[in-house]
């Protein structure tokens, strides 16, 4: 595994930052990783020395080959989801836990489908702005604050009511 990683890091076709990060993990141990799901803003996948990456993209019938794959969200605030559930073996660097060595199977990276066409149809219900005077505007229960509430009913064996006028 170590020899293979050295060869990957030495490849001229990957970006220097990724190569440097890989090289930094060479001396450290890799351990079997039981975790198969990760979320990340950016995902970089680099091919092994012998074989290119085979990449399929949903929506495209054709497949792609490549040495390094980078996926990231720039404007979208949500993270990408990386699933290694179908991979045969996953090893994690003890020095940099975000560096994973994956053997076999398939890894999937998903993000929200880009589309804003239907977003205005899906906006959740909003409570109409001003409430009847019988209902409180803000109800605080311990540290939780609720705004625009409905009528509040209180029941308890004992309690104190204090009026501030």
């Amino acid at each position: 595994m170590k020899q293979e990683l050295i060869e990957i890091a030495k490849q001229g076709q990957i970006d220097p930052e990724t190569a440097r990060r890989l090289a930094a993990c060479m001396d450290a141990e890799f351990k079997h990783s039981p975790i198969r799901y990760f979320v990340s803003r950016k995902v970089i996948i680099v091919a092994g020395a012998g074989e290119l990456l085979s990449i399929r993209i949903s929506g495209f019938g054709e497949s792609f080959k490549g040495r390094q794959l980078t996926c990231s969200n720039v404007d979208n605030p949500e993270d990408l989801e990386v699933s290694l559930a179908e991979s045969d073996m996953v090893f994690q660097s003890c020095k940099d836990p975000d560096v994973l060595y994956v053997k076999g199977g398939e890894t999937s990276i998903t993000g929200p489908k880009y589309s804003d066409v239907a977003k205005d149809l899906d906006t959740p219900a909003e409570v109409l702005k001003i409430l009847p005077r019988t209902d409180p505007d803000i109800v605080q229960i311990d540290n939780r604050i609720y705004r625009q509430t409905g009528t509040v009913y209180i029941s308890s064996p004992f309690y104190v009511v204090i009026l501030e006028r």
Partner: peptide, 13 residues
């Protein structure tokens, strides 16, 4: 459907 789900009244909607 979108309009019906867009607003709600407090308490019973």
């Amino acid at each position: 459907k979108a309009i019906k789900n867009r607003y709600k009244t407090p308490g019973q909607n």
